[in-house]
Amino acid sequence: MARNRYYQGPTSDHFDGVRFFNPGQPSTDRGLRALLRWKLAGGAARWPAAVPVTQATPEAAVAGLRVTMVGHASVLIQAAGMNILTDPVWSTRASPFARLGPKRVTAPGIAYEDLPPIHAVLISHCHYDHFDVATLRRLQADHAPLFALPLGNDAILKAAVPDARCVVGDWWDRLVLREGGAGQGIATTLTPAYHWANRWPSDVRMALWSGHWLHTPAGSVWFVGDTGYGDGAIFTAVADRLGAPDAALIPIGAYEPRWFMAAQHINPAEAVRIFRQVAAGWAMGIHWGTFQLTDEARDAPRLALATALSAAAIPPRRFVAGHPGEAHDVTPAADEG
């Protein structure tokens, strides 16, 4: 019988004792036949080898709420004096191999040496385009941040970075990132996602995947993580349990072909649907334009997002496609006026 190498715990509605799964949703597992059908179809658009980036130099601390796009799912969130990174990847490739795998076409929007002090890192899952051991080792050596991860991912991190400080949880668990009285604490709630995870073919779905809902004195930020749309129930649950985020970081890329990707990655129209479903104050589209993972053209997510926003009569300023190096100050809805 298979044994989970990363996590041992009780069964639940999304863990069968060995593997995690998306309850009531289409399977994300794809065999060799499906993979060959996709790749042999030859439908991948040609991407540019490089796209120019104007890198940002962040302030050491921000009293309010600011998000700066680094690239793909890597975002710097600065809130109430705390600096937090999501799924940081500064490596050239999203791969276990130095010379093989998807190569980035945009430089990071912040040079690694220009990072402010990093206090916490939010990890959504262990796929290589989100969980980059080389970057995590550098961050540990230079900043010693607190890492917040879903179940099982801590074992992967500790194997590579033994002295990493970790807080770990299941869907809906609230993890404290900074203690503080009088409303000055900062925490993340792990939110469900319809996805999957692995590092190798032998460990499929042995570590959990999630989003992160960041609670801060300067406002709330929902880092959605990788997800399909499925029946949409988890997004209704997020809105019911946590309310409307001031800012949402929503994936808009890596979605074609739909027959292969729909169960695991939303497309821009579904991203707009989620934006409306949770009544987000503002959103930035992430997970596009850095690594070519799927068939669509590099700019297709940006263009499809604009079309979807127009169809929904949503002003484009409320949901922007994030470009590396761009920083956005977010005003919480309660402070607008």
Rank of each mutant, 00 (worst) to 15 (best):
R46Y: 12
V18G: 07
T135F: 06
A155K: 12
A283C: 13
R258Q: 11
R205A: 12
L249C: 00
G42E: 11
T68V: 08
L214K: 06
H119P: 04
M206V: 02
G43I: 07
M1E: 14
V62H: 14
A262W: 11
D173R: 01
A34P: 09
R66Q: 15
V224P: 03
S27L: 11
S95Q: 04
A164V: 05
T68G: 07
F260R: 13
R273I: 13
E336H: 11
W196M: 09
A311I: 05
V224L: 13
L136A: 00
H130A: 07
R302A: 15
A155L: 10
W172K: 07
V167T: 11
A111N: 12
V238R: 05
I252L: 04
R165E: 02
G232P: 09
L177T: 00
G152P: 01
L65V: 02
I123N: 05
R37V: 12
V89H: 08
F291C: 07
H130C: 08
A107I: 08
R138S: 04
G225S: 05
Q78F: 10
H215F: 03
S91T: 09
S27Y: 07
R99E: 10
R258C: 10
W213P: 05
G253C: 03
W209F: 15
M69P: 00
V51F: 02
P268F: 08
R19F: 03
V105P: 01
D129W: 09
G64W: 10
P315R: 07
G81H: 02
A327I: 06
E270W: 06
L122R: 00
P145M: 01
A98Q: 12
A193W: 02
H265K: 11
G325Y: 05
Q277R: 14
P145K: 01
T68S: 10
C166N: 04
K158Y: 11
T331D: 13
L293F: 13
F235L: 14
D142Q: 13
A80V: 02
F235W: 15
D154Y: 01
I314S: 03
G253A: 01
D170G: 06
A111H: 11
T135D: 07
P26H: 06
A63P: 14
M261Q: 09
D231N: 12
L293R: 13
A141T: 09
A73F: 08
P150S: 13
P102Y: 10
A160D: 14
H215C: 02
P251Y: 03
